[in-house]
Write a protein that binds this DNA or RNA. Structure first.
Lengths: 249, 249
DNA sequence: AGTCTAAAGAATATCGATAAAATGTACAAA
DNA sequence: TTTGTACATTTTATCGATATTCTTTAGACT
């Protein structure tokens, strides 16, 4: 159920593709957008996507339609598709919403309190703490394993809420947040002590102190958003960087 | 993101813009599923949908792909599509989640308090109160206008929260809840005094009493869910477990 | 300058071909 | 006789090529 960012750029072993063409394009395109390789606002012509992923007309169209209801791609009737726009405004709304929803999920998880849930948090924290965030210590190189475990940790916090709906919404918001992080990743790396922050959240959970846990979690997210916002140089607008001549504005 | 999605699926055909074939099929199919005309679990073969809506292969396929990420249709690679399953369990989760999210939206709307927001609530309540729920007084015949105004009223309560994300999520949940209501609509009609309930919620809002407003709203939703659950005759078909919600990711 | 018309470029729809899965049947073994 | 399995047939989903429709852009005319 959770193949977050697993998509390897290329050279995928063709044999292990039990999926359909449409799903393959969907996943790769989704990964490229989330990873920031396709900039916000970038026009997605059918032909362009077709040759980029070596697929035909129909599968590409299906993938784009799925992504459009995911909120990762914008669709306008008769005018095709483009990568969803990004803006500082939207990041603020996103972060706020995410804090609300995860607060709800965390509080509810702590209220019902299933031992397996708590164990899940403990495990996730343990796994996360053993993995370096960057593959090279000096400068930042994304570590896919860390990303996955990080996602898993945050998900574990709210996993006991008992609502697949809420979990799905939080997943969606986490995807979006990941995208924003990728758009400004360079500046973020040195500034954080993520490990401590995660440990502190988990500690509050283990102490059954919901208010503190929620406060730390909220702080955690808002700090990230603020750092992204402060860099300022994030292409937080449909920059329409390449190819398209007229420039969309 | 916030252009449509507020519209309750109704039979009206004149108002909607003459969109593309794919969008047309999307909307009509969505309406038929929400209205319960297509039962949960019903197989949706391409050909079947094609002739039902007099459309070709591709547009139908696009519409189904969009609906699958909306959670209204389940998709399985190489095995086509079917109407999303429904279950008592899911209704409970759905209702709970909806209460959480709308509580958040309402509390936040009341906290920031924009006068235009409050006026929106007043207006929506006024409009709703002038429309009969059923087109015939004796037995229940859905009144599309009422449905739309009812939706608008509930949306107005949370419209001031400042998060398009939250609004979109609530819209999605409202769609799902609508579907469950339709699946058991006959039994519900005589049992409610909806007008009073809505008025009470609005009254609490106007008095700036957030706790009461949230309590009434939650009660309102839970009462509906309980009535549906008690009828027991809902075709709550559970096709191999999961709902379609998270499936595509 | 502003508006209308025509040509070019995209997006959308239709159709047919191909490949996969489901179904049904026959046959063999218990 | 019943049950299980392998194979053939039918059904169905998926894909790509092509035609059609719409938007946009450029140019001419009022």
């Amino acid at each position: 159920m959770d193949e977050t960012s697993v998509t390897v750029p290329a050279g995928n072993d063709g044999a292990a593709a039990p999926v359909t063409m449409a799903s393959s394009v969907y996943e790769r395109l989704r990964g490229d957008i989330l990873r920031g390789e396709l900039e916000p606002g970038h026009k997605l012509r059918i032909e362009f996507v077709s040759e980029r992923y070596a697929a035909g007309n129909s599968p590409v169209r299906e993938a784009l339609n799925r992504l459009s209801t995911d909120g990762l791609v914008q669709r306008r009737d008769q005018r095709g598709f483009c990568v969803a726009a990004a803006s500082a405004e939207d990041l603020v709304e996103l972060t706020r919403t995410r804090c609300w929803l995860e607060e709800t999920g965390l509080r509810e998880s702590m209220r019902v309190y299933a031992p397996e849930w708590e164990e899940g948090v403990l495990l996730a924290l343990h796994r996360l703490s053993r993995i370096p965030r960057s593959t090279s210590p000096a400068e930042y190189h994304e570590n896919p394993e860390w990303e996955q475990l990080h996602r898993a940790f945050h998900r574990s916090l709210i996993a006991g809420c008992g609502s697949r709906w809420l979990l799905a919404f939080c997943d969606q918001l986490a995807d979006q947040a990941y995208r924003y992080r990728q758009l400004a990743i360079q500046r973020i790396y040195p500034k954080r002590k993520e490990k401590d922050e995660h440990a502190a959240i988990a500690q509050a959970v283990f102490k059954r102190d919901a208010d503190t846990a929620v406060a730390l979690l909220t702080e955690h997210y808002e700090l990230t958003a603020n750092i992204i916002l402060k860099t300022g140089d994030v292409p937080l607008r449909d920059g329409s960087g390449k190819t398209a001549k007229g420039g969309s504005r």
